[in-house]
Design a protein around this nucleic acid. Structure first.
Lengths: 224, 224
DNA sequence: GTCTATAAAGTGATAGAC
DNA sequence: GTCTATCACTTTATAGAC
């Protein structure tokens, strides 16, 4: 068995164990048992448990990046030639999709959170943590850009600020739902957040067929 | 030394150790070393490490309750006889105070988060977790009620929904700041959240001295 | 490369002297 | 009540046979 393949199998097993038993439950023995190999094989593929966890963080980060990319493609494909959807609806759809994903696999989201806290406490994992967070921010920027394009709007605040607000919202929705498991309430919260985010954009005056129906909008103050 | 006093000393020591080294670092030996007593004394005061952590969660929950209560008293004392402050400003002040608190003692907030995740994974701690979350919600309700009173406004959505949104916002601000440590960005995010929360309320038509200056406001749709 | 066996240290909990 | 000493077990990591 090639080392790379063994590394991948161990990382996958570690992800499953962490989702089931948490980071502290992901002992070397638990991981090799999940992967169906011997303890020594782990230390042949990785010098230490910490190196394995570093690879785990890198792997889930990459998975998040891919799933965010896949998630926003349908949004980008949406714009029709005629009436664009309201930005608030586009954002709410996206956030509600995230709530569904969270409710469908809460163990995974909790595992991601635990990995963040573990990385915060482990000096050697600082780089992996920064990379993970950068992926979140990049995904948020891409999602917001795609949503605005689809709704023919543009953001009236710096894109980075809006992206940070979106990350804040998803983080908050996650921890709150993990605590109370109230999916209906989480969807209401998502709707509130969508309204708030949509208020940070304005419609783009495009080639409107009925210009008179364009709603009057005061421009955002330049300082905001 | 009375048992109750020893329990308190152990809980305080455990809080310090968790803030410094995380929940997994709060071994029985680390806690008694911090408290300056012997290992057997811990098991005399608590039947197990798990019981100690249950007491820790109860204690920090109570501390949070008290600090939330103290934090909103100045807000409640604010209403003057004349022009009320804008609700958005009141909410933003409160959130920025929270950001300052977070930046001043990040270890504590991270410890609270870790305790939540630990309680989520430990079946016997479910009750403590629910209590902790209820305290957050109650504090959010109280803060929002006080803020609305101070700004002579009333919430146009159910108070529970607004409170949940506030908890979501503080949770999201916390995790995001813990990851990037960008206090200035967190304050901008707090400002955005304050605007969004304030949009969930409307001014109360009170005994206005200059009714003509009352800004026109369309009532919120009853369904929202 | 892959295993068994084991080292070395840490863990929660307890027995028993005082 | 409070301690030292220790049990029984788990942890990461490695040595060495094959």
């Amino acid at each position: 068995m090639a080392v790379a393949e063994r590394r991948r199998a161990l990382v996958d097993a570690a992800v499953r164990v962490i989702a089931r038993d948490g980071v502290s439950g992901a002992t070397t023995r638990a991981v090799v048992a999940e992967a169906g190999m011997s303890l020594a094989s782990l230390h042949y593929a990785f010098p230490s448990r910490e190196h394995l966890l570093e690879a785990v963080i890198a792997e889930v980060t990459e998975q998040e990046r891919r799933s965010a990319e896949a998630g926003l493609l349908p949004v980008a494909a949406a714009p029709a030639d005629e009436e664009p959807p309201a930005l608030e609806d586009v954002v709410r759809d996206g956030l509600e999709r995230y709530v569904d994903l969270l409710a469908a696999d809460p163990a995974r989201e909790q595992a991601l959170l635990e990995l963040v806290l573990y990385a915060l406490r482990t000096p050697g994992q600082r780089a992996a943590l920064v990379a993970q967070y950068d992926v979140y921010l990049a995904a948020a920027r891409a999602s917001l850009t795609a949503a605005a394009l689809s709704a023919r709007s543009r953001w009236t605040v710096p894109l980075d600020d809006a992206a940070r607000a979106l990350v804040m919202v998803t983080d908050g929705i996650t921890t709150t739902w993990l605590a109370d498991r109230d999916t209906a309430a989480a969807r209401r919260t998502a709707g509130f957040a969508a309204r708030a985010l949509a208020a940070l954009a304005e419609p783009v005056p495009g080639p409107a067929r009925e210009p008179g129906r364009e709603p009057a909008r005061e421009p955002a103050p330049p300082g905001s």
